[in-house]
Simulated scan of single mutants.
Amino acid sequence: MSNLAPSDFQSSVTETATTTASSSVGEFVVQFWGVRGLIATPASNADRYGGNTACVGIQVAGKHLIFDGGTGLRILGKSLRQLQQPIEAHLFFTNSQSNRIQGFPFFAPAFVPENRFHIYGSAASNSASIKQCLCDQMLQPHFPYPLQVMQSELHFYNVIPGNNVQLDDVTVTTALINQTQRSVGYRVSWQDKSVAYVTDLTKNADPVDQEQILQLVKGVDLLIANATYVPPTANSHESTDLHWQAAVELAQGAAVKKLVISHHHPDDEDDFLDEVQTDVKATFAQGLLACEGLVLSIGD
């Protein structure tokens, strides 16, 4: 795991849909467990796309990689527990905002002594490490139990954007893609296949950010990117291109093979998202909107 500063140790794409962790679909599989931005959205008009906040699982070359720990991480954890074997996984956080880390205290496998987790994140805007941010949200009065009650092996790594994480023959490339939010984008490369996870796009990105994003995602088999909106104001839905235009333009400019738009606004109901998906496909045929349970097999 090169170019990382370890902190203290502590005890071609095909689509399917499922609610359990995929282990036999292929050697490079992406699964969506949480697709909302800002806040979880448990509502009957959000059933088809799902209401959990950000969490994406990637199984590649026999390794478990997890990106972001929103409330979808709880569901992913329940699925991993069904494997009934020791689990080792790598968790990568894009930033330390609540919608990216709020599922971590409910990640059941982290409470099992036989399991081991490697946790990666860059310094937050207040310079706090990912370990500090995860610890803080589990302190009273926010949560009844401290992080120390997790009995699995937890290894924390401070990511320096621009450096790589090497996991045997799997390379995870990092880049700072939103200086304001101190958000990191990731690219997972294995053999000749690649997936990019860039979820803090803005409509008017800084030129430096734009160049780093472009280099990170150029030519990937799959780009996972966010829809754009201006929180915390209500989403007026007056112009659907506000939600998907930046992601589509990036996919086109970077010559990516497939685009999945995630991190849907809490006010975006299923019917509205159906309309957005129609608009996206009319502009970028290999684009679609993420929904919970979506599974994509890379290179098959």
Rank of each mutant, 00 (worst) to 15 (best):
G219N: 10
D47W: 04
G37V: 03
Q151W: 00
S2E: 07
L296D: 03
N115S: 09
T174K: 05
N163E: 11
I160R: 15
N3I: 09
Q148H: 08
S12N: 13
G103S: 07
F67T: 02
L214H: 04
K193M: 07
K63W: 01
G26K: 05
E275H: 10
I213V: 15
Q181S: 12
N226T: 09
R48D: 08
Q191M: 11
G293T: 05
D168Y: 03
Q179S: 14
Q181Y: 03
Q85F: 02
E292Y: 01
R116C: 12
P161L: 13
V217Q: 00
Q59C: 10
P161W: 05
E249I: 12
L139D: 04
G219D: 02
S194R: 07
M1K: 13
R182E: 06
S98K: 14
T20A: 10
L38A: 10
L147E: 03
A225T: 00
D300F: 00
P207T: 05
V60R: 01
V112E: 15
K258P: 01
V149C: 09
P144A: 04
A54V: 13
Y120R: 07
K257G: 02
S183I: 06
G62C: 12
V56H: 04
A196G: 05
N235S: 10
L91V: 15
T16C: 07
V172M: 08
D241W: 04
Q132K: 12
P232A: 04
F92C: 05
A43K: 13
A196E: 00
Q31L: 04
T19P: 02
L242A: 10
G103H: 01
P146I: 01
L288H: 06
K63T: 09
D271W: 01
N158I: 07
R182H: 11
N3S: 14
C291L: 06
E269I: 15
S262Y: 00
S11Q: 12
S183C: 15
Q140G: 08
A43H: 08
S2D: 07
R48N: 08
S297F: 01
L289R: 02
Q277G: 10
L289N: 02
E211V: 08
H155I: 15
L288K: 11
Q151N: 13
S125N: 05
R36K: 15
E238N: 14
T41V: 15
H264T: 09
P105G: 03
L38H: 07
V149T: 14
V170K: 05
A54D: 06
F106E: 11
F92D: 01
V149L: 09
V208T: 12
Q181N: 12
A21K: 09
D279A: 13
K63F: 05
Y120T: 06
V195R: 00
T171E: 07
T240H: 06
L222I: 01
A40V: 04
P207K: 02
G219A: 05
S194Y: 00
Q166R: 14
Q215N: 14
L223V: 00
W33M: 10
D267K: 11
S127H: 09
V230W: 01
K131H: 09
I66Q: 08
T278S: 11
C291M: 08
F272I: 10
D47T: 11
N178P: 15
T202W: 00
G162Y: 03
L91E: 01
G185F: 02
N178A: 06
S98L: 12
M1P: 15
R182M: 15
F93L: 15
D274Y: 03
L296I: 08
T94S: 15
Y229Q: 06
L76I: 03
Q132P: 06
N45K: 12
A128D: 08
